[in-house]
Design a binder for these strands. Sequence first.
DNA 1: TTTTATAAGAATCAATTGTTGCAACTTCGC
DNA 2: GCGAAGTTGCAACAATTGATTCTTATAAAA
Lengths: 309, 309
Amino acid sequence: MPATRSDALTPEVSLSDRIAQAFAGLPPQLQTAAQFVLEHPDDVALLSMREQARRAGVPPVTMTRLARQLGFADYAAFRDLQASALRRPPHTAEFSHRAGRLQKHQQQSGDGALAAQIGWTMAEHIASSHDEAGSAALIAAAALLEKARRVYFLGLRSCHAVAFHAHYIHGLFRDSGVLLDGAGDTGIDALRHAGPEDVLLVVSVAPYTTAAVERASYAARRGVSVVAITDSRVSPVAAMARASILIPTETPSFFHAITPAFAAAETLIALVAARAGEQALSAIRNAEHQLDAFSTYWSRRPQRRKPNS
Amino acid sequence: MPATRSDALTPEVSLSDRIAQAFAGLPPQLQTAAQFVLEHPDDVALLSMREQARRAGVPPVTMTRLARQLGFADYAAFRDLQASALRRPPHTAEFSHRAGRLQKHQQQSGDGALAAQIGWTMAEHIASSHDEAGSAALIAAAALLEKARRVYFLGLRSCHAVAFHAHYIHGLFRDSGVLLDGAGDTGIDALRHAGPEDVLLVVSVAPYTTAAVERASYAARRGVSVVAITDSRVSPVAAMARASILIPTETPSFFHAITPAFAAAETLIALVAARAGEQALSAIRNAEHQLDAFSTYWSRRPQRRKPNS
DNA sequence: TTTTATAAGAATCAATTGTTGCAACTTCGC
DNA sequence: GCGAAGTTGCAACAATTGATTCTTATAAAA
């Protein structure tokens, strides 16, 4: 998903576009296969078809059918396209030297290595989701948020923290944010008054929670502009989104990494603040002063009140 | 000379180095093959062996022999090495390569540059907080959490999302977690039963919220082991902590970056899960099945009920 | 409901893969 | 010149590849 985007000729883009476009009209099992291909484009060129099918959890035939469904004569034609995207210019041969070090790094074991690996993966993911293509998506989303009458924030389960935080920092300079946290199962009520001038920021990664998908869909049908932070261009929420911010979630640990989504959210709101300009800045200062008055924040000297010279 | 039979697995030396070194002692025909490989390293991974032999103008066997002469058991082993070198970042990425592109991107101006800068800073922060020292701190903290009777999670305001998320993923495999979210101002009540066998994970960065500091201090006085995720060795919560995880928060945006703290929390809980081992894994699976039963998660097939009229 | 169309999977097939064994061929030293 | 160690390539090998066919499931239409 990351990798080279705008530079040089990358027929790989056209392929994933092709898949993404055809995706909705594909039968379920082919969608499984298609999603796997989207997430592991390299494997198409590097693995045998059967091995891929094995990893994607589908019978081999399905891959053949997918290739054909996408308009290729062969699976071979499909693979060749990916292969040529993967090829690098002939002279960059010293590349493989780098691989050695990485492998060695991976082959270490123990908690320390695990921690380091998780860290690197996250850093890498964040970097990749802030590259040129990623930035463009973030900016487009920020533009929508900035001029919205109201911004709704929706994220459930593992994604709730992201939505919560986005809403929090957004609230530091705007009072138009509404967090759809569904306490007491009131999740959808606030959306009753939502309309085309509003924006819903929905955060959802696989496995997608039903409620989030349904609520986002409800909002979309009401004309609300949906902005999605999600993990695949074919995720259910990306389908209904006006703008999608794609972030990877793979990690060497048991769980999905939510950190990249969190990072995207932080950047997104920062961009909105930047667009709002001086106005936002002074709002933030106001908020700080107000909190200070309540001595919300700890200060080294027990009390700031008394000017204890 | 059987060449490098003994040092069979040394991923440290790049493949091309290995070939170049052995080259002189190779029989003529193998040199032909070796030269071709040196000039077309990509093809090793992307083409079949026979196809390569065809292009190199040698009989297929020669490629097998070359691989073996270089100390590989298989041609497959040979190919796999090249394939992993060819694979694009996702899992095995060198960060600096990406960083270079981002930096270049940064030198532009406008929103895109800001987004890239924020992303780069966050990635840097995460990488730095997962280095050796950082990993050690994470591991020490994980050890405390792992053997705790009960784990309390505390984070307020901008740090609340971090505590919330840590509690959530912790809850996927342990039922000993308690989130001190203070809804209805009950923040401290749960700590009444806390004691020396328990751990409090407190997340707090400048400006430190008074309430968080006070509650952590209260817990510490009760003998609870405090684990702090914070931004300075001298932060008020670090002072009372048994283990401190330090994360940077500077960023080019108006706000503090919470993402690094979030990342640290994710890694921390992942480490706890790793330590808990198989037990944790099966707990996670159980949780998933249970959620499945409630159809919490969305599945591709839109409809779940049949009476569609 | 029954009918029809579509999707999914198992079994099978020819083609191709990487490998092995053997025989022909070097290229030396003696 | 002769034999021995080392090279080379052909032909045959089992294993695996990607494709086809046919049957069973599943969903939609009448």
